[in-house]
Design a protein around this nucleic acid. Structure first.
Lengths: 238, 238
DNA sequence: CATTTTAAATGAGTCAAACTCATTTTCGAG
DNA sequence: CTCGAAAATGAGTTTGACTCATTTAAAATG
């Protein structure tokens, strides 16, 4: 790799990266209005006009930045969920992941929401597809949970999604707004899960004194999981 | 009232109202970037410079508009909750009210979120106190519900608040983003309440936990379903 | 290797919109 | 009616996004 002269295309892509990185930083700590195109150009060591060769305008540049953020978020979520078996552990991971990442770069998140500030004839399309891919991970977990009989299947997944991400993002916003209070992300995540558990779970799966009924249900859980494993194996065989 | 010549102070306040009304309209259907100060001035039948006698700058004007929106929202919520006795009916009212109002003027809502777009050294203070007053209504309902023994009191009200408003606002955003799907506000509201009900209610206070016999039957059902799944798979393989 | 052609980069210049301020208008008190 | 202060005005300034004629670098050609 080193030693080979980069092709034209490679040079262009590298420069785009540089610009995106610079823009991300400037947007992150300046906000939309605070981020001047001239600042971004300087940070990327590029002339101002050059920015417009790579991105139509300031909005398009911000959108590209957000697209990258979203992509990273999605990839990491996907990788993180993959090895986890239990539905609730999966949800716990997704919640943690979302909160941690969004807190780390919450400015970008707010910017993203702000991008779609009314009117301005904006094209939601690209954001929609990003969101769809991210949210698909959650949906898959939910669907599988329902299929395994661990989750109530009379609730639309859409509602669960709104509840899950809505609660988390609202909590993040609340948190950023009252910085004097101690964060307690764990508390938030645990709380959401607790409500989901006792609110979206097939009745009986909760703690309590482990009655015979509950034990039976746990056995059923285990059998369900075994079945899932078998199914996976069968898929492999084929 | 009519016939009396307005005092100087009254005239000033009236003019401020006019400006605020104009600004609200222009912001609402132009968005932040789309709303030009000159448009607002024209809509208020006032010179551009005059705007700056009443509001320090564009941001301050937007903030004032939002403050009014929030105030109205709060007053109506307060009035609406007052005569209702039952905790869940109160929550249902608050949810409905929030969704309806926010959908009607969602542009303002997004603008509000957007106002606090990073950096720009903005003072969250005023928004915080607005939010506090609005949210206090919800908190009161929750606290009373806990006191009456209708709600679990091991959950922090803050979490319930994040869940309630977070879910609703996320749902609203989802809705605005996918206009092809049918709205179904009722569904959303009902869903949130259902989850709250079965997730935040003291067990036994409302729906009794199912009897052991019922649970056994459910377990049997689940096992049957598992078996069916396995059989299907095996058939596929063969 | 020299030359032509084509792509990429530049930054001075344009333009639009937020904001300022010297001037004018309005209005009430004396 | 007159004067002074408060309020309003809009032409002018400033700022920052965006354009485009020109320059520079790279690739193709012979």
């Amino acid at each position: 790799m080193s030693g080979t002269k980069p092709t034209r295309r490679e040079r262009l892509e590298a420069r785009e990266e540089v610009i995106l990185d610079a823009a991300r930083k400037v947007f992150r700590d300046g906000g939309y209005a605070g981020a001047k195109m001239s600042d971004i150009a300087r940070a990327a060591a590029v002339a101002e006009g050059t920015l417009y060769l790579y991105f139509k305008n300031k909005d398009a540049l911000l959108e590209a930045v957000i697209e990258r953020f979203y992509d990273d978020l999605t990839d990491d979520a996907e990788r993180g969920v993959a090895p986890i078996e239990d539905t609730f552990e999966r949800l716990a991971f997704l919640a943690r992941h979302h909160v941690d990442r969004c807190l780390a770069e919450w400015q970008l998140l707010e910017l993203m929401i702000g991008l779609y500030r009314g009117g301005m004839g904006y094209d939601y399309g690209s954001h929609r597809s990003l969101n769809r891919r991210y949210v698909a991970i959650f949906d898959r977990v939910i669907r599988e949970g329902m299929h395994r009989g661990e989750l109530r299947d009379d609730l639309p997944p859409r509602l669960l999604r709104d509840l899950f991400y809505g609660t988390l993002e609202y909590a993040i916003r609340t948190l950023r707004m009252h910085p004097e209070e101690t964060p307690d992300n764990d508390g938030t995540v645990a709380g959401v899960l607790s409500i989901l558990r006792q609110g979206a779970v097939v009745p009986g799966a909760s703690a309590q004194p482990p009655s015979e009924a509950v034990r039976l249900e746990r056995v059923a859980d285990r059998l369900t999981r075994v079945a899932t494993r078998l199914e996976t194996r069968l898929d492999d065989v084929r």
